[in-house]
């Protein structure tokens, strides 16, 4: 990719914010370096902290396409890279026969590029535009080791060989983002190819800024309550702790319901936005819920004038 398209570090921070992604200096520095050094960005973190969203924001910032490869166990090269369109090849031969084409010429063209089904990785390599795409390899931890090894090879020289056609090399190196939820540890060799960044849950202030950008029209008071409530939830021991994505869903839901103030009943009836397992929902019962909301509200009371100290 063209190193200068991203701009300087403060510019990236600003432009990401313009795209609705609030990033701190460390993350923007890493993004900048990934662009400059042309290295893939390896993002790890709990589900819902904004790993995929960052890739999308970078694509918008670069004004280019996002090519996404969703990983799953059993993902193989055929569904990730390319496959021949056998049915079209077969039809082509039939058509040529019907047209009475000379036998020696028959089927000469069926291993042409037009019969190639291009899957995400090939799309990213063969991308024909002055602006290289953003390639998002999402949830790499869900793929198996064989695929990981394959990806390692691809990411080191950005070229692939199709026996019938030859070697295709990327004209411009795409901006690659890999994400992992850490259901398993990725191999060191893959990580070594990349710049590593761990995305943590945001603090209250940062999360409030995110909500303000992502949910236009939300009142500041409600947004603050939501974020403080979420921060408390994350300190508890749930099977699946809610991420920023859940916060945004929840804020959207509360806005749609016309709610202006967090009350236990409101939280209870919208709990499915933030806790996705029944056992987790059961953990947040009456007393604990009351307490969490009380803390959320008390904070607000004290926040007038002494907000900073209360935050600490």
């Amino acid at each position: 990719m063209c190193p200068d398209m991203l701009g300087s570090i403060p510019e990236i921070e600003q432009r990401l914010a313009g795209e609705g992604y609030i990033a701190d200096r460390e993350l923007t520095t890493t993004v900048y370096l990934a662009g400059q050094l042309q290295k893939p960005l390896f993002l790890e973190g709990e589900p819902g902290v904004g790993k995929t969203a960052l890739a999308k924001a970078i694509a918008r910032l670069l004004d280019t396409d996002l090519i996404r490869l969703q990983c799953y166990e059993g993902l193989d090269a055929q569904s990730a890279l390319y496959e021949w369109n056998y049915l079209r090849q077969m039809l082509e031969i039939r058509l040529q026969e019907a047209r009475g084409i000379d036998k020696a010429e028959l089927g000469r063209n069926i291993f042409d590029r037009e019969f190639l089904l291009r899957r995400p990785l090939l799309q990213a390599i063969q991308y024909e535009s002055p602006r290289p795409p953003v390639l998002l390899v999402d949830e790499i931890d869900r793929s198996d080791e064989e695929f990981e090894a394959f990806l390692l090879e691809l990411l080191s020289d950005f070229q692939i060989t199709i026996p019938e056609i030859g070697t295709i090399k990327a004209a411009r190196v795409p901006f690659v983002v890999l994400t992992s939820n850490r259901t398993r540890e990725m191999h060191d060799a893959l990580k070594r190819r990349c710049l590593y960044h761990w995305i943590d849950y945001p603090g209250v202030e940062k999360e409030q800024a995110i909500v303000a950008v992502a949910v236009p029209g939300i009142r500041e008071q409600l947004a603050g309550q939501i974020c403080r409530f979420m921060e408390q939830l994350r300190q508890q021991d749930f099977y699946k702790r809610p991420g920023v994505a859940e916060t945004i869903d929840w804020a959207n839901a509360l806005l749609a319901l016309g709610i202006e103030d967090l009350e236990p009943e409101v939280v209870k009836s919208t709990l499915s936005c933030i806790l996705k397992y029944r056992s987790d929902q059961e953990k947040l019962t009456g007393e604990q819920l009351q307490k969490a909301i009380a803390v959320t509200k008390n904070f607000k009371g004290r926040a007038v004038g002494t907000g900073r100290r209360a935050a600490i």
Binding site: R25, E26, L27, T29, T30, L33, K191, L195
Partner: peptide
């Protein structure tokens, strides 16, 4: 901060 971020991004896995 930038020096630190660059070190983190390249050295930590």
């Amino acid at each position: 901060r930038e020096f630190h971020a660059a070190s983190v991004a390249t050295l930590i896995r």
